[in-house]
């Protein structure tokens, strides 16, 4: 399995595809450290986002991934760590 990298741009694309974006939020702005909740994503939107990341990257996310990593920056780092673990395994 070749090494995959999960980027912020990929996260934004998946968020938009799966859940859209709140009218008051510009995902292209400085949102890296804004919580998903403040970005307007409720639990179902995050469930959908997580499902799409799992499908696309062939990984399994822990149930608490969004509560443990509640911002785009934290989530991207956590998913890249999971991807590296998957390559190492």
């Amino acid at each position: 399995m070749s090494e995959q990298v999960f980027t912020v741009d990929a996260l934004k694309r998946i968020l938009l595809e799966g859940a859209g974006a709140d009218e008051s939020v510009d995902l292209d702005g400085d949102v890296l450290d804004t919580s998903f909740e403040d970005l307007g994503y409720e639990s179902l939107a995050l469930l959908e986002t997580g499902g799409r990341i799992e499908r696309e990257y062939g990984i399994s996310l822990p149930d608490d991934v969004f509560s443990e990593h509640p911002t785009p920056r934290a989530l991207v780092a956590a998913i890249n760590a999971l991807l590296q673990d998957a390559v190492a395994a």
Binding site: L16, G18, A19, G20, A21, L44
Partner: peptide
């Protein structure tokens, strides 16, 4: 409608 509402 806002894009948040379209996928749901």
């Amino acid at each position: 409608l806002p894009s948040r509402l379209i996928p749901q």
